[in-house]
Design a protein around this nucleic acid. Structure first.
Length: 427
RNA sequence: AGAGAGGUGGCCGAGUGGUCGAAGGCGCACGCUUGGAAAGCGUGUAUUCCGAUUGCAUCGGAAUCGAGGGUUCGAAUCCCUUCCUCUCUGCCA
């Protein structure tokens, strides 16, 4: 979230830039400013009363020692009456603070100046296109048809076990998926990211710190008995490793990667684009996260974009990169680039990666800071991206790399699977 | 799940009612020492908020010893609630 100090100093700028999201935050910001003002005036009063009490308290033991009991009793009486007023004031102070916090939590991150105007996904700006739209095979089948026919994915069994959105991968396709995970992880490790194997259940605090709570409360699976949440992305545990941290300049940058399953309830998204692997409740993803000094975060973002591009190129899939417009930007992100792969049989683009700079928005909740050479304290910047999410990659591979007899595995991946094609049984 | 122990500053660790924001050590920073380094010596070293002055330097104040509440003129220290960790037992992949 934004700091009050920042809001105080940049009120107009924030109001202006939130318009890119289609939001009018003027009223909220003024609420925040007035709550902040009253908070400070309450604190001022409280502090001075407390100071008075404290100064008397330090006299009392001295008076008692020197036998001046009457004087001591006098001070005690004065203090106990003062104390009553502090009780009320501190209650007011706390309530004020709570209100202030609720407003603060509600303000999304400020869109970066580079974020294009626009209200819907149609206004996202294409900044890169790999250029090679594949020749579509005459009878190219969408992945759900082909994979079902060849018994590579069992959607019905998934429904039997869990419900819609929990596919079962079979045989070579399961192997291909495993190979891809290793391929992605190795690519990330080679690029300097350290691998972590993480819990996929996290507590409330972790969910809050990266911004999933309370914003996406309804989108996460919640285990009430233990008050734990199934992670919607490994961004959550990965980034929270550095919650409540003070880093040294020499520790930076921090580059991490992790493979985890991800869980999303996808409440409210039924009916649209949910066929096959397009939208799932459980899927596998390899994530990259970086923690950077503020002045380096833009460069880091560019590096991440280049990195994901490289992986997609190795996969030989046609793809494009979009700069998200304000209306399509996530709550916590300052700027986001989406990677979409072209699915020939579906004749549409599917999002396979999303790379974002959160600047200090998450750090403020995480309390993730560093100390510079002059011993001044600053919030760090966090960034993350998928490298990559599995199901849609699989879907595109199935749709783009099929011929009449087999599915062809790209070279770079074949090293990991141990086979370079999946033969179809004729039927 | 049951029983017990415990949660103190970047880390370890002392501290059971009164200058305790907290001894000591480690670490870190700067300085001295040295041909250089280590060792040694010296100095400094928590965070947040409010205020003054305004250079993110300095000064004053408040709060914080897991969290919340209570007792008291006064609590890290006593009481209650709660969360978490560890050990043993039970159970088990």
């Amino acid at each position: 979230m934004l700091t009050v100090k920042y809001i105080r100093e940049h009120t107009e700028k924030i109001i202006e830039s939130q318009k890119k999201r289609g939001l009018d935050v003027e009223k909220q910001l003024h609420q925040i400013l007035s709550l902040d003002f009253s908070k400070r005036s309450i604190q001022k009063k409280l502090n001075s009363i407390q100071a008075e009490i404290n100064s008397r308290n330090s006299l009392i033991p001295q008076l008692i020692k020197s036998g001046q009991h009457k004087e001591a009793q006098d001070l005690i009486k004065k203090n106990s009456s003062l104390k009553k007023s502090t009780g009320q004031l501190s209650q007011e102070f706390q309530q004020n603070q709570k209100k202030l916090n609720n407003y603060l939590i509600d303000i999304p991150n400020i869109p970066h100046p580079e974020v294009p105007e626009g209200t819907t996904a149609d206004h996202n700006v294409e900044i890169f296109n790999s250029g090679k739209i594949p020749q579509i095979l005459n009878k190219a089948l969408p992945h759900w048809e082909l994979a079902s026919k060849q018994n590579l994915i069992q959607f019905e069994n998934g429904v039997k076990l869990s419900g819609r959105g929990f596919p079962v991968y079979v045989g070579k396709l399961a192997q291909l998926q495993r190979g891809l995970v290793n391929f992605f992880l190795d690519q990330n490790i080679q690029a300097g990211y350290k691998e972590y194997a993480l819990p996929i259940l996290v507590n409330e605090q972790s969910g809050f710190a990266t911004g999933q709570l309370p914003d996406k409360e309804g989108q996460m699976y919640h285990i009430e008995k233990d008050n734990l949440y199934l992670i919607p992305t490994s961004e959550v545990p990965l980034t929270n490793l550095y919650r409540d941290s003070y880093l040294k300049e020499s520790d930076l940058p921090i580059k991490m990667t992790s493979y985890t399953p991800c869980f999303r309830r996808e409440a409210g998204s039924y009916g649209k684009d949910v066929k096959g692997l397009n939208r799932l409740h459980q899927f596998d993803k390899v994530e990259i996260v970086r923690i950077e000094k503020p002045e380096n975060s833009s460069n880091a973002l560019q590096e991440m974009i280049a990195h994901v591009k490289r992986i997609l190129t190795l996969l030989e899939l046609p793809f494009r990169v979009l700069k998200l417009c304000g209306g399509d930007l996530g709550f916590t992100a300052s700027i986001t680039y989406d990677f979409e792969v072209y699915s020939a049989a579906q004749e549409k683009w599917l999002e396979v990666s999303s790379v974002s700079n959160f600047e200090s928005y998450q750090s403020n909740r995480l309390q993730l800071r560093y100390r510079d050479k002059h011993h001044n304290r600053h919030l760090l910047h966090t960034l993350n991206g998928s490298a990559l999410a599995l199901p849609r990659i699989l879907a595109c591979m199935i749709e783009n790399f099929q011929d009449s007899t087999k599915l062809i595995i790209p070279k770079a991946v074949a090293e990991y699977t141990g086979f370079d094609s999946i033969e179809f049984s004729d039927s």
